[in-house]
């Protein structure tokens, strides 16, 4: 039986109004068609190149977008559409974010207090114990508890960021680029933690550019390209040169991996200001027909996954 998704995003569109020069104002669409479903006990990775607006997805779910952003489409939590007020109530409680960089840590709090924020309703001793446990698990020295954010190295900061979110009792964890700056050992540790958390019933949305890391743990992978999710695939679909994949872009992406053929197709992702009218991948696609350039294809079910392509089988 299919599990009911805890978090569901339907056709999200996100745009910014911006002044380019002088009084010329333009509407810049950063996310065009984004669909995803996240169930409890599941890890979903959204993979796209950096700077493509993936982080904005997390910000949209948490309701922390900048003031000049506008969204369309639906974000549903437990089957109900989330309003801004709901988002504010849920964030930090039921939905937590593992942010991208140290800049998100409070510069005036020591690591101990930082982690403590998410440990509400606990006695001092319990907090102390959990703090020590979590630091120990990531191989951080107990002295780190007294450190302020500026004293942390990149890898250490990453672990502290994770720790703050992992100790909380949230149902949904959104991790924004949790892996860069981690060496292999800590990476394995972190990924294992994610796995454990999801096995204990939490839903994890991992936003990353690192397809290798995503393949290691995610149950499902959503491929994000030029502001849209082009394909939803299982990790196994990438095996054997990507034979199980559906969308021509994902196939090309798989072939370009250094562990595969390392072969690149021509061209580049269109910028938000130059999106084609039809399929977003049409200008680089070998299968492109006239129909592809006319309108954006629907997101349809194919072999247990989804793809936004009329030629995909």
């Amino acid at each position: 039986m299919k599990r009911e998704p805890i978090l569901k995003i339907e056709n999200l569109e996100l745009s910014f109004s911006q002044y380019i020069q002088g009084l010329k104002k333009r509407e810049l669409t950063v996310i065009t068609n984004l669909d995803l479903e996240l169930a409890e006990g599941e890890i979903l990775a959204v993979v796209g190149s950096s700077g493509s607006g993936k982080s904005l997805l997390a910000h949209a779910i948490l309701g922390i977008l900048p003031y000049n952003a506008r969204t369309r489409g639906k974000i549903l939590y437990k089957g109900k559409v989330l309003s801004q007020r709901e988002k504010e109530r849920l964030r930090g409680q039921e939905i937590v974010l593992v942010p991208q960089s140290v800049n998100y840590l409070d510069p005036l709090l020591q690591v101990e207090q930082q982690i403590g924020i998410s440990l509400q309703n606990k006695t001092k001793e319990q907090k102390e114990k959990m703090n020590n446990e979590i630091l120990h698990r990531y191989g951080l020295d107990l002295a780190v508890k007294q450190y302020y954010p500026f004293q942390l190295s990149g890898g250490m900061a990453r672990k502290v960021l994770l720790a703050t979110a992992l100790t909380s009792s949230a149902k949904v964890i959104i991790a924004d680029e949790p892996t860069p700056g981690l060496d292999d050992e800590s990476l394995g540790e972190v990924l294992k933690d994610f796995r454990n958390l999801s096995d204990s019933g939490k839903a994890i949305l991992m936003i990353t550019h690192d397809i290798q890391a995503a393949l290691k743990i995610a149950d499902k992978i959503a491929i994000f390209y030029a502001g849209a999710t082009l394909e939803l695939a299982a990790g196994i679909d990438f095996a054997h040169g990507g034979q199980g994949l559906r969308h021509p872009y994902t196939k090309a992406l798989c072939r370009a991996l250094p562990g595969e053929d390392f072969e690149a197709i021509e061209g580049r992702q269109p910028l938000p200001s130059e999106l084609p009218q039809g399929c977003l991948f049409s200008d680089r696609c070998q299968l492109c027909t006239e129909e592809c350039t006319r309108q954006r294809p629907d997101y349809r079910m194919i072999r247990g996954g989804k793809a936004r392509c009329i030629h995909a089988t």
């Binding site: 796209g48 190149s49 950096s50 700077g51 860069p180 550019h209 397809i211 090309a252 992406l253 798989c254 370009a256 991996l257 250094p258 390392f262 072969e263 690149a264 197709i265 580049r268 992702q269």
Partner: peptide, 14 residues
């Protein structure tokens, strides 16, 4: 090319 997608990575390295 750490922050880039696999296709761009392959293009630049080639």
């Amino acid at each position: 090319t750490t922050m880039l997608d696999a296709i761009t990575q392959a293009q630049i390295w080639n």
